[in-house]
Write a protein that binds this DNA or RNA. Structure first.
Lengths: 146, 146
DNA sequence: CGGATAATCTTATGCGCATAACGAACGCTG
DNA sequence: CAGCGTTCGTTATGCGCATAAGATTATCCG
């Protein structure tokens, strides 16, 4: 493969990550959230209460990260952490009312962010973009390939 | 816009960021590098010695981040930090021989990473992907839009 | 059953990023 | 030339992520 193409691709992904996250941070700041936390709330709102291990799997991040993020969201009152009666190792994470309300607001912000992100892209690109992103994600997922 | 589409897009970008970065970390580890540092070396190898402010601009990150990253790369012997004779506030960053050699190795790794990332994508998507990434990056760049 | 293995969470610790606050040098303009 | 806003860099602090190491509980198997 052409090294210039490789560079454009990798650097492009890196830059998009930084900027998209930075923009998300700007939009989430009024809600008192840091980027990354919105994913927790959205996931819980989608699928209901989850064990931390399941949550980490869904978010694509590791157990220690889940512990810290859930602890902070618990401290700000948006989620609950209760022991799992069926498995004394596990802790169940669920949304509080405040967390549910926040999830709704996040969803609106995310429409704004998505519209902003894909502005001026041709309709054809829009259509295949989610699939492309998903394919690339699974391509570089270490757990399955390596 | 459809909230589901927005979610797929934003979440897709977030997941791709995480996994792509994690895979980069795996590939860079044998070189003793952490993800983010490779961008510094590649940029310096591309454009020659730079002032830290210029470097930060090229990388899309803020002055404190540049200070820390360059300090660490200096400590590992890959770059040099010399005072700018023409501007006593500035410090010029340049590659050492070890840094140049490393940049070559990184370029090879990045071809590997890029090939892995776009595996199974149709040729048409490959062709427009860099442009799409660039458009999205500039779309969410806070400095110009906001 | 009991003991090894695996799963779940937690506590360090470290890196890349950010913002905020500061000091030092530049450069323009009165 | 004196003053002042601007630019460059640094330190301090905080968050999201990671890995490594430990403690507790589940589970499987001999």
């Amino acid at each position: 493969m052409d090294p210039e193409y490789a560079d454009a691709l990798n650097q492009g992904i890196r830059l998009l990550s930084l900027r998209h996250r930075a923009r998300a941070a700007q939009l989430l700041a009024p809600l008192g959230l840091h980027p990354g936390q919105e994913a927790v709330l959205l996931e819980l709102d989608r699928t209901g209460p989850l064990i931390q291990a399941q949550l980490g799997e869904a978010l694509g991040c590791e157990p220690p990260s889940v512990t810290l993020m859930t602890r902070k969201l618990e401290a700000s009152g948006h989620i609950r952490r209760t022991p799992d009666p069926a498995d004394k190792r596990a802790t169940v994470v669920s949304l509080t009312d405040s967390g549910k309300a926040l999830a709704d607001q996040i969803r609106e912000l995310w429409v704004t962010l998505a519209e902003e992100t894909v502005r001026d892209l041709p309709a054809a690109a829009l259509k295949q973009l989610p699939g492309i992103l998903h394919t690339m994600s699974t391509n570089v997922d270490g757990r399955s390939s390596a």
